[in-house]
Nucleic acid binder design. Structure first.
Ligand SMILES: [Mn+2]
Ligand SMILES: [Mn+2]
Ligand SMILES: [Mn+2]
Ligand SMILES: [Mn+2]
Lengths: 217, 217
DNA sequence: AATATTTTTTAGACTTATCTAAATTTTTAT
DNA sequence: ATAAAAATTTAGATAAGTCTAAAAAATATT
């Protein structure tokens, strides 16, 4: 069984590896975990000893099949809890992440089975992120960055950044998962966009914001 | 903020102190926590340093007002989660304790407020134990041991022992919280009882079992 | 009141997780 | 191909929580 800390490292490494595709470097992990590289080196040795990652000194780590499956189980729990908090307890989408960071470490397969059922086997969380099923399978819809949208009417389907500050801003300008969004004009000067939200509200958003909103066309 | 371990010690001490009434000895705590007296001595020094208990060397500890309030908050969370698991997720009463042992340590006042509301502000958990409100107030109904019942028709209102083995046994013989139970005969030889459950089922139960069932007459 | 028994505390060691500072290796730039 | 810079690892320290063994204090027994 993994400790709380091991689970957090593994999840972070998995995310940084792009679902297990890329190698991940010590300093990246340290930055993401808000810890020191020396601590990361200690931990990756331990995770490697447990066959969750492979580690080559000075060349970073790769997630093993085993590690990927463990990571997906934690991500599944995180997203199911976030869904529960919003759908059943009336949390808003910017309030759930930190609580889910704690809840994702609860050890009880039965609990997760029952929670999944209680929620009606949701396929995505309040931020539009896919929820892996109990075998770790999930499906990502074809999606593009709003920044790359060509002006067709599209639908907001996920956020890339899920910090409270960004989510609160999105709520303020009327964007939510499922909202209709259409790029009306791209401002050459700074790459900002004028968009139409839900067919009625015109707003300007920065390039940075537009690169953190995913849409389906 | 208290660590996971500090919370567990404090809760155990509070329970052993009979809601803050009695002093609690090192060895009692060690036995209950399944740990060694030396470890307990370390921890009670730490809890005393945080003013959650008072500690007099060789004479045990007492829970402070502060400590009582912290303990009640943990107990409140434990019992709300147990109620959630049974009422919303369909757990049976013998499956919830171990999961609640983990969930009780989740730190989020908002979560507990919302969970309480979602459950309709329950006043007792699946084992008939009172759930303190957010100020730590709770009410214990007048209750006696089934072993001391005089033969009047009574109602099972709580269990003293909540181990899965005992709870499964109770379920098997038809006893649940709210069930009608009436002592028909007390067997002099070993103190066992013949009882009538829900007005229709006659069963014999041991003295020990009868001392772990609480009823209201 | 002295001795034996039980309880509790102390001392010292181990593990996990963290840090800082120094050493090493790799990468980049000249 | 060197030298400089950046990334990474190692070494050594600290804190929480645990343990065993030994010492000390309280309680029970004669
Ligand atoms: Mn999240
Ligand atoms: Mn986490
Ligand atoms: Mn319980
Ligand atoms: Mn607990």
């Amino acid at each position: 069984m993994l400790s709380f800390t091991e689970e957090n490292y593994l999840k972070t490494i998995y995310h940084l590896s792009d679902n297990g595709l890329k190698s991940v470097m010590t300093n990246e992990i340290a930055e993401m975990m808000e810890t020191k590289p020396a601590s990361v080196t200690d931990m990756i040795k331990r995770l490697a000893a447990k066959s969750l990652i492979t580690y080559e000194k000075y060349y970073g780590v790769n997630v093993t099949k085993n590690g990927k499956s463990e990571a997906l189980s934690i991500i599944r729990k995180h997203r199911l809890w976030e869904t529960f908090l919003v759908a059943k307890l009336g949390f808003s989408w910017d309030e759930v992440h930190d609580v889910a960071e704690q809840l994702e470490h609860i050890q009880s397969p039965l609990l997760i089975e029952k929670l999944d059922e209680f929620l009606g086997f949701p396929s995505s969380d309040p931020h539009g992120h896919p929820i892996p099923d109990k075998h770790g399978k999930f499906h990502i819809a074809r999606q593009i960055l709003l920044a790359e949208s060509t002006g067709k009417k599209a639908s907001a389907c996920a956020v890339k950044n899920s910090t409270p500050a960004f989510l609160q801003y999105l709520s303020k300008i009327g964007i939510y998962i499922g909202a209709s969004v259409q790029v009306l004009e791209k401002i050459e000067f700074d790459g900002s966009l004028e968009i139409l939200v839900d067919g009625k509200k015109k707003v300007y958003i920065s390039r940075e914001a537009s690169e953190n909103i995913l849409v389906t066309e």
